[in-house]
Structure formats: structure tokens, C-alpha cells
């Protein structure tokens, strides 16, 4: 379906979105925004998958993208639940502050 000329641009966009999301994870301090950047990365992956599926005329990429959406939804639920708990016990919502994993 997808033509040979447009396919690289799809992939480029996907890569751009992905790395943008990675950049956001690295530089933002509010964990909610970090979360959203992770969602952005997942969407980028979905874009790449669907792009390939269309280019190669195979529906497996779409099946995988479907699974990714499911997992992303589950992950958002748990993650936001955690963040809610962090907030409710009075901690700052700042990833630099939440460094309990420090050795």
C-alpha cells in the first residue's frame, strides 16, 4: 500500500518521535511529563510497526502494535497509581528527589 518513496519518511518520523521522547525522559523533571514522553516513544514504535506492516503487506505489524497499545495502557494505569501514592504521602513530584534506588 505504501509506496517506496514515502516509507522512509514514515520511519524518519517514527525515529524522530522516539528520540524526542527519549530526550524528554532525560531532561524533564516532572515525572508525569516523563511518563508522557514514554508514551510518545511507544507511539513512535507503533507508527514504525504500522508503517512496516503497510509497506510489506503483512498484518503482523498491526497485531504487534495492538499488543503494544494494550501494554502501554496497563503500564500507564500502574505508573499513575504509583505517582498518586507518591504524591499522597507528601513527596515532591520531582525525579531528582525520588532517588531511593541510590546505592
Amino acid at each position: 500500500m505504501l509506496s517506496q518513496s514515502m516509507f522512509p519518511w514514515i520511519l524518519l518520523t517514527a525515529a524522530f518521535l522516539f528520540t524526542l521522547g527519549a530526550l524528554g525522559v532525560l531532561i524533564r523533571r516532572n515525572p508525569l511529563v516523563v511518563f508522557m514522553c514514554i508514551e510518545l516513544m511507544l507511539n513512535a514504535v507503533n507508527l514504525a510497526l504500522v508503517g512496516y506492516s503497510s509497506y510489506l503487506n503483512s498484518e503482523e505489524g498491526q497485531v504487534f502494535a495492538f499488543m503494544v497499545i494494550v501494554v502501554a495502557a496497563a503500564e500507564v494505569v500502574v505508573g499513575l497509581g504509583l505517582l498518586t501514592r507518591v504524591f499522597s504521602i507528601g513527596r515532591e513530584l520531582d525525579v531528582d528527589d525520588l532517588d531511593e534506588m541510590k546505592q
Binding site: L2, E39, S53, S54, I69, V76
Partner: peptide
């Protein structure tokens, strides 16, 4: 890109549920 099902799912789940939750 001819992925109609994913189009709908994306809108319902992602835009309609996940982002609302956010």
C-alpha cells in the same frame, strides 16, 4: 496506511482513555 482497526483503537484507547487518565 490502511490500518483501520488500529485507527479506531488508537483513538478509543489512547486518546480516549489513557490521555484522559493523564
Amino acid at each position: 496506511l490502511n490500518a483501520q482497526f488500529l485507527f479506531v483503537v488508537q483513538l478509543i484507547v489512547y486518546a480516549g482513555a489513557v490521555m484522559v487518565l493523564f
